[in-house]
């Protein structure tokens, strides 16, 4: 039943995409939040070979731990994703304030 993990990732990505394509600007923010969860889950699962111990070394050797590298990567990704999300959120506020709309389909000042 490993099959379930890919489905989880698919649902996170697909659901995020669905939200991104909606009109409300807040939905886009939430959608990107879901997608970044999906990417993080995918990234950490890339080190998943099976169950393992928390990679905190005790006295007895270096066997049986899970891969610490993806964890480090995900940590970086989480923080960057948080920064980007915060930025996007404030930008959404600016969009609403300056362009006087929170509907993405009305933002069309530049075309052609």
């Amino acid at each position: 039943m490993k099959l379930l993990l890919p489905v989880v990732i698919g649902v996170l990505f697909g659901g995020g995409t669905y939200l991104m394509l909606k009109k409300n600007i807040l939905k886009l923010v939430l959608g990107l939040g879901l997608i970044s969860h999906g990417a993080n889950v995918l990234l950490i699962s890339s080190g998943w070979i099976g169950a393992g111990a928390v990679p905190i070394l005790g006295q007895d050797g270096t066997e049986g731990f899970v891969d610490p590298v993806p964890q480090a990567l995900v940590l970086t990704a989480i923080v960057i994703g948080f920064a980007a999300l915060a930025f996007l959120l404030v930008l959404a506020i600016r969009v609403y304030r300056d362009l006087k709309t929170a509907d993405i389909s009305e933002i069309r000042g530049q075309r052609g």
Partner: peptide
């Protein structure tokens, strides 16, 4: 997107 990412993860 969902399907492709699922297959990709598989």
């Amino acid at each position: 997107v969902g399907i492709v990412m699922t297959f990709y993860m598989l």
